[in-house]
Design a protein around this nucleic acid. Structure first.
Lengths: 217, 217
DNA sequence: TGGAAAATGGACCAGCAAGTCCAGAAATTC
DNA sequence: GAATTTCTGGACTTGCTGGTCCATTTTCCA
């Protein structure tokens, strides 16, 4: 995938991707031209097409992959060690901080709307990112189960999917409104759900359980 | 806002907005030109600029408002009557169906990335939509509280915000991956949370409550 | 050292799409 | 029914932007 015969070539290619990512984060993909990228990275037109023969689309795809990798990296080491309530809290704070710092432009979101359904490439990047992210969340939940902090009958995969969706939506809303409260609400409610889920049947007596609410499969 | 001196004018303007919305939903904003819209709506360039002197941006903004209105309309009448578990289930199904039908293009999402932070107009549309949506969810939760189906100490606003974020993210993920399971998970988990929330303190004895989990304000 | 391959610079091209303009048709008003 | 306003058609302009091309320099390797 990343063909770079010489050392200098690899460096230049990396510089292009990183610089392009910067510009795209600042201006948004819709308002970014190859000349902007060229200017920022101190390269010439021919270099851009030398390293990305597929043109702008290929470059955008490379940037998308670059950003996708960053997403999970920026949540480490917390995301990898979600085995206690404290670690979950630290992870939550890391996520909030990361996206509050990022400002009001979602690199990936906009990237994919531009690249669109152009081939399986773009879709594969998002799909892969989502899968890994959700897997790590699920693993964390299972760690809680193993430690007896979460009931073992919790549907981990579904809960992880819901939490991931909440984060995603919280970020989306923040990008549009500039307000991070939805992201926080999604994270906190999602984590709170871990502490309360599965405790409605067979526990206390009074207002629990079956008020006609179906579990609807 | 919508100045249309004569009847024919209003009709034409409406036809343009609706036709543009169709094209945008099909092709995505990045790949839609004014000529596409012109072709679809059977109008001429001059009409486009006659009714939208602000050019493409103004037209896109009008379409955005049009789509934003549709979002809430398509959830009625369920969204307005969320006072029983059954009505919540019906609403959930309506949301899933609406977005599954919509296919793989989010009109609003892409629209705002194109129009971007161009003036307060775009942002106001999203903000207003989110506020109304969340308000209706919160009202539904309060109705459940009034009927004794949900504990009264539930933080309705935060829970509604989280649910909204989950929907938003579920839709986003569905647009990128083509899979609606995240949307369903977010909806089901969010509603399930209503049935279990606030029941962790003071109910059963064993694995509930304070295992070192902070409520972190 | 010398030739091949890679890397770079930048002028140039072509097409497209937003926006302009004006003439003419329709309709509203008096 | 004439005048004024609104509405419509479509050719034209113009600027931008992705992409091409080739000359030149640098690096690699034998």
């Amino acid at each position: 995938m990343s063909d770079a015969p010489t050392e200098k070539g690899r460096a230049t290619r990396a510089r292009i991707v990183e610089g392009a990512a910067e510009v795209l984060r600042e201006q948004g993909v819709a308002f970014t031209t190859l000349d902007d990228i060229r200017g920022r990275t101190g390269t010439s037109k021919s270099q851009l097409f030398h390293y990305f023969p597929g043109g702008k689309d290929q470059l955008l795809l490379a940037v998308a992959q670059f950003e996708a990798d960053r997403v999970l990296e920026d949540q480490q080491p917390h995301l990898g060690r979600l085995d206690s309530w404290e670690s979950w809290r630290q992870w939550r704070d890391a996520v909030v901080e990361r996206y509050e710092l990022q400002g009001d432009h979602c690199p990936l979101g906009s990237l994919f709307l531009q690249v669109g359904r152009s081939g399986p490439g773009a879709r594969a990047i998002v799909t892969g990112l989502m899968r890994q992210w959700q897997e790590q969340l699920a693993r964390g939940m299972r760690a809680l189960q193993a430690n007896g902090l979460v009931p073992s009958d919790l549907d981990v995969d579904r809960t992880a999917a819901a939490l991931l969706a909440g984060i995603q939506g919280g970020v989306t809303i923040m990008m549009s409104t500039g307000d991070s409260s939805h992201l926080k609400a999604a994270l906190d409610t999602g984590i709170e759900h871990l502490r309360t889920a599965g405790r409605t049947e067979g526990s206390g007596g009074n207002r629990c359980g079956t008020d006609g609410a179906p579990p609807w499969p």
